[in-house]
C-alpha cells in the first residue's frame, strides 16, 4: 500500500509550485494510479481558488506611528540636578555621573499602546546575544 502521508506533503509542494522535478515526476506517476490522491489534488486546488478571495486588502486605520515622544529623561535629570543643588551635594562628583546614567542611548517611539511587555525570548534566534558578541570579540 502506498504511503499516502508522503504524497500528501508532495501534493502541497505541487499545488504551490515548490516541488523538485524528481518529486514531481514521482507524484505524477503515483497520481495516475491512485484515485484517492487525485481526489485530494482536486480538493486542494478548489481550496486554493477559494482562499484567493482572502487576499483582498482592507484599509488600515490612520497611521498609528505618527507621534514621536521621547521619555522626559532630560526633565528627570534636571529635576535631580535641582534636588542635588537644593541639598548642596558636591556637584562635580555626583551630578554628572547621575545625569549621564539617565541619558537614553536610543529614542523611544511612543505608540500609545497600553502594554509594552515584550517577549524577547521568542525571537532570540534573530538577535545576536551578548555571549555571541563576546565570542566574536575573542
Amino acid at each position: 500500500m502506498a504511503d499516502h502521508s508522503k504524497y500528501k506533503e508532495m501534493l502541497v509542494e505541487f499545488v504551490y509550485g515548490e516541488i523538485s522535478r524528481e518529486r514531481e515526476e514521482e507524484l505524477l506517476r503515483h497520481i495516475s494510479t491512485c484515485s484517492e490522491c487525485r481526489e485530494d489534488l482536486r480538493q486542494l486546488l478548489q481550496a486554493r481558488d477559494l482562499a484567493s478571495v482572502l487576499r483582498k486588502k482592507y484599509p488600515s486605520p490612520p497611521v498609528l506611528v505618527e507621534e514621536r515622544v521621547a521619555f522626559p529623561w532630560a526633565a528627570l535629570a534636571f529635576l535631580l540636578f535641582l534636588l542635588l543643588l537644593f541639598f548642596n551635594l558636591p556637584r562635580n562628583e555626583v551630578n554628572k555621573e547621575k545625569i549621564q546614567a539617565y541619558q537614553p542611548s536610543w529614542e523611544v517611539l511612543e505608540l500609545k499602546s497600553p502594554d509594552f511587555s515584550l517577549v524577547l525570548d521568542d525571537f532570540k534566534d534573530y538577535f545576536v546575544t551578548e555571549d555571541e558578541k563576546n565570542k566574536t570579540r575573542r
Partner: peptide, 24 residues
C-alpha cells in the same frame, strides 16, 4: 478591527525597538 489595531501597534513598537539587533 480593534484587536487587529492593538496587534499592529504592538508589532510596530517591537520592530522599532529591536530592529538594531536584526541579524539577517
Amino acid at each position: 478591527p480593534d484587536d487587529a489595531s492593538d496587534v499592529t501597534q504592538q508589532v510596530l513598537f517591537t520592530v522599532s525597538r529591536k530592529i538594531s539587533g536584526l541579524r539577517e
